[in-house]
């Protein structure tokens, strides 16, 4: 599904150059539930942005669904994002003057689906996420958890192959965080690849595969079977903290 090969990325900050990703090799299969972890500045968000075609890379190759993602026009990448990827952000990023239903329907609007049809589909998804009564509410009338669920519905509506979530629980309290993770798990169970960036161990522990980044390189990849061990180390880390 996703094949990264020796990805490099640097940002130019004034006169200095910041080398963020220093050769990332990563394979993610269809249907995996992956979390990317790392301290701030380790390049996890940059990696996610490259995966989501929001940012380009300097070196290496990135294949998504066996297609090479490189040097695309803005138009092409916008269409590809629309078809392939659903985004969930830490700060929800709902459009403030559109109600929940309209927010969810937005990707279909860019696909050219007519208003009636896309609003009907949006209602289905809101219903799935238990937000049907909130369809007419504006984002500022909803709680953080509700907003994130709206954002998830929006990410799902265009039937993406991958859900990319950048700190989806970063702005939520623990119980809401777990609810959101439950939703993401369900989505994953339907066969959609879910990749989240997080720095919370307990969140990462709910995924099937943890990719730890350190200074722009992959430090370790903890697979499904090892997660028990990961939980163990995580608990120990907590105790020492």
């Amino acid at each position: 599904m996703i094949t990264l090969n020796n990805i490099h990325k640097s940002y130019v900050m004034g006169s200095s150059k910041l080398h963020v990703l220093k050769g990332i090799d990563l394979d993610i299969e269809q249907g995996e539930f992956v979390s990317i972890m790392g301290s701030s500045g380790s390049g996890k968000s940059t990696l996610l942005n490259i995966l989501g075609m929001l940012d380009n890379y300097d070196e290496g190759t990135y294949h998504l669904d066996n297609k090479l993602i490189a040097n695309m026009s803005e138009k092409k990448s916008a269409q590809l994002r629309n078809e392939m990827v659903g985004f969930v952000f830490q700060s929800f990023n709902l459009i403030s003057f559109k109600n929940a239903m309209e927010n969810v329907a937005l990707p279909l609007y860019y696909k050219g689906v007519n208003r009636k049809k896309r609003n009907a589909i949006a209602m289905e998804y809101l219903d799935k996420l238990g937000l049907a009564p909130w369809a007419e509410h504006m984002p500022n009338e909803m709680s953080g958890g509700q907003k994130q669920r709206v954002a998830i519905a929006r990410a799902l509506i265009s039937h993406p192959k991958i859900i990319l979530a950048d700190e989806p629980t970063g702005a939520l309290d623990t119980s809401t965080s777990y609810e959101v993770m439950e939703i993401l798990k369900e989505i994953n169970n339907e066969g959609i690849t879910v990749i989240i960036v997080t720095h919370e161990h307990d969140i990462a522990a709910m995924t099937q595969k943890v990719v730890r980044l350190k200074d722009g390189r992959i430090d370790e990849i903890i697979r499904n079977g090892d997660l028990r061990a990961f939980r163990h180390t995580y608990n120990k880390e907590l105790e020492t903290a």
Binding site: G52, L54, E74, A78, Q79, R81, F87, I95, Y110
Partner: peptide, 13 residues
């Protein structure tokens, strides 16, 4: 930011 969101979810330039 709003323009960024729109572009992330598939609005063409």
């Amino acid at each position: 930011q709003e323009i960024g969101i729109q572009r992330a979810i598939g609005a063409t330039p």
